[in-house]
């Protein structure tokens, strides 16, 4: 029981720790739409230093600077598209977690679909072969049966 309450205390501590670190950057937004745009943008833009994190998750210095940049551009009245274009112009498509559909990303977008189609074809071929095998076996068995009966 005592162990339990210790565990609870640690859990609560961790809970407050995360909320405290999330509040380090307190930004003020002119309106809720701007806040929504900001949160969405920092979710969608990749941190280039840490690669598998987005701007929102990363504490890398570059990510902080880029968050700041997003915030400032929103304050100056830039649209979401303008901000994404600004980032892509500097860091390339890689900065977007959702890459655009174009000739260099066709494999990325349609590769899984191609794999699925291939898999379905293989499964069909496999099934047809099995059916044929069982048909052949039963025919042989029939002949054998006839033979036995004739004797």
């Amino acid at each position: 029981m005592k162990y339990c309450s210790h565990l609870l205390a640690v859990f609560l501590m961790l809970l407050f720790m995360t909320s405290a670190s999330a509040k380090i950057e307190s930004l003020e937004f002119a309106n809720p739409q701007m806040e929504k745009d900001y949160l969405q943008l920092v979710q969608e833009l990749r941190c280039l230093v840490c690669q598998n994190q987005n701007l929102a998750d990363s504490n890398a210095e570059l990510a902080q600077d880029l968050r700041h940049q997003v915030y400032e551009m929103l304050n100056k009245g830039s649209s979401r598209k303008e901000i994404v274009d600004y980032m892509v112009a500097r860091y390339g498509d890689f900065v977007m977690y959702k890459p655009p559909v174009k000739s260099t990303t066709y494999l990325l977008w349609f590769g899984p679909l191609v794999l699925l189609v291939l898999a379905i074809i293989v499964v069909f071929m496999f099934m047809r072969k099995q059916k044929k095998d069982t048909a052949e076996v039963s025919q042989q068995a029939q002949e054998k049966a006839h033979h036995l009966l004739d004797d």
Binding site: L48, V49, L62, D65, Q69, R90, Y91
Partner: peptide
């Protein structure tokens, strides 16, 4: 550096 797309 941001204008030059520097990330490291």
């Amino acid at each position: 550096a941001i204008d030059y797309g520097v990330y490291g």
